[in-house]
Write a protein that binds this DNA or RNA. Structure first.
Lengths: 236, 236
DNA sequence: CGCTAATTTGAGTGACTTCAAGCACAGTGG
DNA sequence: CCACTGTGCTTGAAGTCACTCAAATTAGCG
């Protein structure tokens, strides 16, 4: 199967076990069926761009499987990663709701299957299902709270503290395998774009963490050895 | 009238000309009357705290008149100002919607009159008025978009650029008087807590901007002399 | 009361330190 | 072989500390 091919077997929402699926889990069966009927579904390979900053998008995406990074591009072309999204998360809904152009770019980190749901469906659901509205608001509010935390961290913490914190955050969102290895593989540059620093700084600090016995490095795989230690470094 | 006194003349929502009042402007007359009946109203002096990070709030506030700063407190006690709110803005609704503890503190910058509306009313409106829901979501999404911009700026721009940008941002939100003077007076420390830097750095940079002819300083009043110049410094 | 004296608060400066960015270059591995 | 990783070195931006000065508040006291 080539890249970007239309998915031949469209995953069914009702059987989609993507963890959480916070947003759709309280829909009535007939509402879910509506979503099923109107949605489309595609596969994307690492590096593929789902939507780009400044473009108009006429719907939002629900991640069936995979990992996506959401980032803004700074004035000098440097990426600032805002968040990662994975199985069960929705992306692009901010632009739909606010009817603005996308203010971020979404790009695939790990091969992904996405369902696309047109704007009209979202507004329909908001208008007819107050429970759905509230859940959507709570999602937005959660993101807003996280963004506020992030602002405070970047403004006040050192790069060292922030890197430790990001590692912990990644651990919480993507878990560790049985060997304590982070289940998301990022390049040093992606880590840097998340922390808001230079790639070299990340490299140096990672090997510092390694020699301090907090982590172990095997290429892009990061094994966490000393969780409390990292917590301390991060000032949590 | 002493400080913090209960307001004897509760301002009427229907006659409240607070600019925008984005959230309430599309309510039906009977809905507005419900809000009127259930709300309470208080006056606060500069320095008064409306609600504190970590506290539970059982309603949200609508600013009838005044200016409020919303900030988080970093691990070493340093404030990080997230945003300012003024006449017509609502604050505290994030915690209400997400049913979490307040993640920020709200403090009065300029003497303020606030209306307090209990949580239940907010949820009632969301459940019965889809138009209101959508507007509330759009407000949250707008804030989220601004937060994302802010993250990128703090992570990538220099203190100098950020200070210039903040001045422009304040100009857009609070306007200038007929003499081009910013209509919000902040201490150097508050500016620093907004930019995410040390007070001394703000002082130094402000006098740099002054000697470069961009601004004029008269205590806390800042007069803007060269708007395009500031835009250039801010990399806009 | 009313008028200094004392204290506090914010603005501003200078000297010093440090963190982290930038550049150049050398491995390395898919 | 090219993108990614890693290292050494240099430089600069910005934080910290220590202090002065002015204005504003509060206290003290005849």
């Amino acid at each position: 199967m080539g890249p970007y091919t239309k998915n031949t077997t469209i995953p069914s929402c009702s059987e989609c076990i993507a963890r959480g699926h916070q947003i759709f889990k309280n829909l009535a069966p007939e509402e879910l069926e509506q979503v099923e009927n109107i949605k489309s579904c595609n596969n994307y390979k690492r590096g593929a761009t789902i939507y780009q900053e400044g473009s108009r998008i006429n719907g939002f995406y629900c991640i069936h499987h995979g990992i996506i990074k959401i980032f803004k591009t700074g004035f000098d072309g440097k990426e600032q990663i805002i968040r990662f999204a994975q199985s069960g998360d929705i992306i692009g809904y901010r632009s739909v709701l606010s009817k603005e152009l996308a203010c971020t770019t979404a790009q695939v980190i790990e091969d992904t299957t996405l369902c696309f749901i047109p704007s009209a469906m979202l507004f329909d659901l908001v208008k007819t299902n107050p429970e759905f509205s509230i859940q959507l608001m709570q999602l937005t509010c959660k993101e807003l709270g996280e963004a506020n935390n992030y602002i405070t961290d970047i403004a006040q913490k050192t790069v060292r503290e922030r890197l430790a914190e990001i590692l912990l955050l990644l651990k919480d969102n993507f878990d560790l395998d049985e060997n304590q290895v982070l289940q998301i593989a990022l390049t040093r540059e992606e880590l840097a774009n998340m922390v808001g620093t230079a790639t070299e700084s990340v490299i140096r600090l990672l090997s510092e963490f390694k020699s301090d016995g907090y982590i172990e490095l095997h290429g892009r795989k990061i094994k966490i050895l000393n969780l409390p230690g990292l917590h301390k470094v991060a000032n949590f």
